[in-house]
């Protein structure tokens, strides 16, 4: 930001790092390109090395891009904007630590948004390992940024129950049957968030964050469709394309992959400038994404040049 105030030649360490790493990658790709013209196949390990470098470099020397929300992300944002304060949103952490880098930023951003709007949040998870992920949101978002929000009143964590979609099959008619207490053993009836909530049908919005099974598809099949409950989702990029058939009739919106999360973070900061200094992990992650995409595309091009040359040679014979 301040670089334009400095004399043009005074580069920061980060700038030098950026230039150096780009030079290394570009040089390497050029070398591979020349090899390809000589019709030499690239070994797997070389590709691996390139990916490694193109992910590490932007992490050490970060670059941030701006994002604009696409309609499918905007729909989720607008839905939360439109809910009156006091509405109850269920946020299901249907992911494990392995998937977390991609979807945890979504969970954090959506939690932030709901809390600043004065909505009440019920946290649960369909993955046993999702509970630890909630702790991360609690420690990194709720406690530091919303110190006045009270557990059981503004949000509650009812945790994990085994049974995958079986759990959903129960809570579509009765929460208490599956979750007699929250994770700390507080009985259902004395949790203020559950005032007026008997089943999923009484919720104003369900958001499933995840990317595996059970996940958003199960939420649509077992809760959204049979109970007419509004459902939104934040999913790992791998699942996102499969969910398009459900949008918008069965699922009102979706954050797809880290790009979806980055778009949501941008949108949130745009509407609520007070979050300007909150962490935006997804936006930061777009740097490595971009570079790695570039490298993969370069590899596809090199691979095709190689293939076409091989074929030409084959024909000559």
């Amino acid at each position: 930001m301040t670089s334009h105030l400095m004399p043009p030649l005074a580069l920061t360490l980060v700038d030098i790092g950026r230039i150096l790493s780009l030079a290394v990658i570009a040089g390497g790709l050029l070398w591979l390109f020349l090899r390809a013209i000589k019709r030499k196949e690239v070994e797997r390990r070389v590709i691996f090395l390139f990916i490694f470098v193109s992910v590490v470099a932007p992490i050490l020397f970060p670059t941030v891009f701006q994002e604009k929300a696409t309609p499918i992300v905007k729909d989720v944002f607008d839905k939360i904007e439109s809910l009156p304060p006091g509405s109850v949103v269920l946020l299901s952490y249907d992911f494990d630590p392995a998937m977390a880098p991609e979807v945890q930023p979504m969970a954090d951003a959506i939690s932030r948004h709901c809390l600043v709007r004065g909505l009440k949040i019920i946290y649960m998870c369909l993955f046993a390992t999702g509970q630890g992920q909630f702790t991360s949101t609690l420690e990194n978002v709720i406690k530091p940024e919303f110190p006045d929000k009270v557990n059981l009143v503004d949000y509650v964590n009812i945790g994990y129950k085994a049974g995958n979609e079986g759990v959903l099959n129960v809570i579509i008619t009765d929460f208490k049957k599956m979750f007699p207490t929250d994770v700390d053993g507080v009985p259902y009836d004395s949790i203020a968030v559950f005032k007026g909530i008997r089943s999923c049908k009484d919720l104003d919005l369900v958001i499933s964050i995840g990317g595996g099974k059970p996940g958003i598809k199960e939420w649509i099949l077992f809760v959204g469709d049979p109970g007419n409950v509004p459902i939104a989702s934040g999913v790992a990029a791998v699942v996102a394309p499969l969910m398009y058939p459900y949008y918008p009739a069965q699922m009102l919106g979706m954050l797809g992959g880290i790009k979806g999360a980055a778009e949501y973070e941008s949108e949130l900061v745009h509407h609520y400038p007070q979050f300007k200094n909150s962490p935006t992990p997804a936006l930061l992650m777009m740097g490595p994404q971009t570079l790695a995409h570039l490298v993969i595309m370069a590899f596809i091009v090199i691979g095709n040049i190689l293939y076409l040359l091989e074929r030409k040679k084959g024909r000559k014979r």
Binding site: V42, F48, F52, A292, V295
Partner: peptide, 8 residues
């Protein structure tokens, strides 16, 4: 890594 080598 594998996604890259597979696309190549």
């Amino acid at each position: 890594f594998f996604v890259a080598s597979a696309s190549y």
